[in-house]
Design a protein around this nucleic acid. Structure first.
Lengths: 255, 255
DNA sequence: CGAGGACTTGAGCCAGTTCAACTCATGTGG
DNA sequence: CCACATGAGTTGAACTGGCTCAAGTCCTCG
């Protein structure tokens, strides 16, 4: 593992993450302690953060980039069971071994804590453990949403749903022009999309090109897709419009 | 909702569940408080415990029976995203509305607590909240296992996996003879199996009958299947044998 | 006994996979 | 600077696992 450990200890207040889930909305003492323990880790696209079955030695938060949570059947078939984007928690507390491989789907920066130390903090600050519980509850909801998608929806519906999720997940600090033109940033490759949506790159490509031909979207480049006709994209997704239209509801990215 | 509320308050120690996840291994004061709040609820097969989107007014534990956690797309397609068997937690703390419908897949008895009261207890007894976190962590693992199954495995593999999970989940207090003869109790209908495995009753039936013809299993009645050749069933499941053979590992039922 | 539900079986069809070929962008070394 | 390899994405064509529709059996229950 060719990982650069930047030893810089950063205080919670100086945490470079815009929406670092760990460090916001917690009491000052907890924030102080977290800051003392925090370490930055940087991964290049493709690098493994934690292998499947590996011991979990640290937990943390994604500051930038994308991680994929991936499971592999013993014959090699793989499935991405979650994507972690900035603000998401990495790793699992009170679980010695990971049940998923965690890999960088793009260049990624993490804010990490040793799992042991973090768990001690959880014991000292029940508010932190409470936040973990709420976060995990959301992850479980997202996982259940994804099960419904994988089990019942066709490829076009999956792709449409994915694009809508990416649109909602796209950072609110993007240039305003980008937002009104409805450009969705797709942070992962077609291959990862296929592994996440439970299909193949070919099927992904066909669905996307079909949407292009029917004028629903426009491809700027493979990672940037303009949503020309949002309501038709929502129709294609097979979901209730209220799940994607503003006001924001509680459907979340699987993770 | 035609639910009988038996007002009987039961102390944790007298909890009729053999492996009530809430009431075991916790401190005496917490147990006392839980006992004061506990109420028994009984549902007939097919009854709805909590509808999708409904407010969650209580949480609890399954004492007997099976609940299905079910999601419905707005066009009617449905998927069971989890089964709750005795010992499993029902409901979600710190979440006002359910994102799944919870229905009795068989006659079911629950040990319930008002959500509000239970959440207050969680605040007073961090050990309880810690248990919730660990339980939810296991549920999330199971959900991710199930995503892999739904996205990558064929129907025969899904059915084999399901039978193996049922075999492991079968209560250890079954008659000894039943255990050595490897009779798996299937607590749900083919229709629910299909909704859980993301397929149809017809495909379920064909896979099961194929296993019968090849001598892997024997059907005693639709709800009782004898595993004649466990290692071949494990082969069919497409999983690593270590996941199902004793010693018990940490693959769990999706929930 | 008849109705209804659960399960099984058969036959045809189709969405999506597989395999193969192609374009295009990027990078590498001579 | 070009030749070439490599990887990502797209497109075409054929194949197939599982779905759909339809018709059966068996069991339970009123």
């Amino acid at each position: 593992m060719d990982v650069r450990h930047l030893g810089a200890s950063i205080g919670g207040r100086r945490c470079p993450a815009r929406r670092c889930s760990t460090c916001t909305d917690i009491s000052e003492p907890a924030k102080q302690e977290l800051g003392r323990l925090a370490r930055i880790r940087i991964y290049r696209a493709g690098e493994t953060v934690i292998a499947e079955q590996d011991e979990i030695v640290f937990v943390g938060t994604v500051l930038s980039g994308v991680l994929r949570l991936q499971k592999t059947l013993h014959d090699g078939r793989q499935q991405i069971v979650g994507l972690l984007v900035p603000g998401d928690m990495v790793g699992r507390v009170f679980s010695s071994n990971s049940h998923v491989a965690i890999e960088a789907a793009a260049d990624t920066t993490l804010c990490c804590y040793s799992r042991g130390n973090f768990e001690i903090l959880l014991g000292r600050f029940p508010e932190l453990e409470h936040r973990m519980l709420v976060a995990m509850s959301h992850e479980l909801d997202a996982a259940q949403d994804w099960m419904l998608l994988l089990a019942t929806q066709n490829v076009t519906e999956r792709v449409a749903t994915f694009l809508l999720l990416m649109r909602r997940a796209s950072p609110s600090d993007l240039p305003v022009m980008t937002r009104i033109s409805h450009v969705v940033e797709v942070p992962i490759s077609r291959k990862d999309m296929a592994a996440y949506l439970g299909t193949t790159v070919e099927s992904i490509s066909r669905s996307i090109q079909q949407m292009v031909r029917s004028g629903v979207i426009r491809i700027i480049d493979p990672q940037h897709i303009e949503v020309v006709h949002a309501s038709r994209l929502i129709d294609l997704s097979g979901h209730d419009p209220s799940e994607f239209d503003p006001p924001r509801t509680d459907i979340r990215r699987a993770g």
